[in-house]
Design a protein around this nucleic acid. Structure first.
Lengths: 177, 177
DNA sequence: AACTTTTGTTTTATTAATAAAACATCGGTA
DNA sequence: TACCGATGTTTTATTAATAAAACAAAAGTT
């Protein structure tokens, strides 16, 4: 695959745009409406910047503007927001409930990657979490075993999980430490 | 936490820079040296762009330039590369071996998020994979059970795993489909 | 040595996301 | 009604990452 690494910031729409859309969603939930100034305050950027970005998003049919300058997500915009929000949510749960990461790390990491993950990955992760959180006996045993488990990274040569130059080498890693 | 969403492209160094460093690493492995032109070809960008970026990275002490214009990673640069590579590696394995995503999706998603994940998350994921890939009986049972498991997303209201506006709603999701 | 090719650098330009400030408009109130 | 404050828009500027093209230097070839 050519130029995989460039795909990173070629998401359409961009990370920034998605957060503008999520702001609209959030403000509607909270206040029942979303104006430019509200979005600007929420995202902590200027009104001018918001005006420019939202005009583009309007032209691309992610949202509409009514007579009162209130913004509304279109079907298309809402779908993007839902998709990102759901991925963030499930990733965060995986990070905190399976990997046992502190809430802030889980939140931050989930937010950073939410819109980069494919929907396919999101779906599979939901499936996994559905299983992991079930009360099936084999799952309970698995969780119990994991509680006890400590992964001791062997010498660089023997480490099965890292690439060469394993930077965790020598560290003992457990769920909690 | 203020402006979490902005943290996304405030990684230091940037996604692009890290890929320049990874190119140096890769080319050293493959050819034993790394020149500007090689990096440009590898990343599929122009020599001019590489020259500018590498000068900045040199000034920031991520790499050095020798008399022959060959680039070498410093300790600091090597550490960044290792960290990103290890995270990519373990994430990719999680995606393909646990979530059973197709190789290309696993690769692409892993590449997109590699440098955004905290080292802490990388470590915990390694620990999890160390456990998941072990031959412990409770793990084997867990894997077996997961093979069979299908997660059926309930109605929006009942879905335990998505946020409101669950976009997977109604779909049956299994490991393989 | 003169020419050609390869490689590296510099300059000019573009695009996206932003700030800042000027400008425009609208709504209320003195 | 005339002004003030809030909000939205436009203009100008900045930064990072890039391309493209001009330029420079070194290395190889004839």
């Amino acid at each position: 695959m050519k130029d995989v690494w460039k795909k990173f910031d070629e998401t359409e729409p961009s990370h920034s745009s998605i957060h503008h859309l999520m702001a609209v969603y959030h403000l509607h939930q909270k206040n029942g409406y979303a104006r430019g100034i509200d979005i600007a305050n929420y995202l902590n950027i200027t009104r001018g910047s918001v005006s420019i970005t939202l005009t583009k998003l309007r032209d691309k049919n992610y949202l509409t503007e009514d007579e009162n300058k209130f913004y509304h997500l279109t079907e298309q915009g809402q779908q993007l927001v839902s998709s990102a929000l759901n991925k963030r949510h499930i990733v965060k749960r995986f990070f905190s409930e399976v990997l046992q990461l502190p809430a802030e790390v889980a939140e931050l990491d989930a937010c950073k990657i939410e819109h980069l993950l494919s929907n396919e990955t999101g779906e599979k992760l939901i499936c996994f979490m559905g299983y992991y959180l079930s009360e099936k006996p084999e799952v309970l045993n698995f969780r119990l075993g994991f509680q006890q488990f400590k992964y001791k990274c062997q010498s660089v040569a023997e480490c099965r999980l890292c690439e060469s130059d394993c930077f965790f080498s020598g560290k003992e890693i457990s769920k909690t430490g």
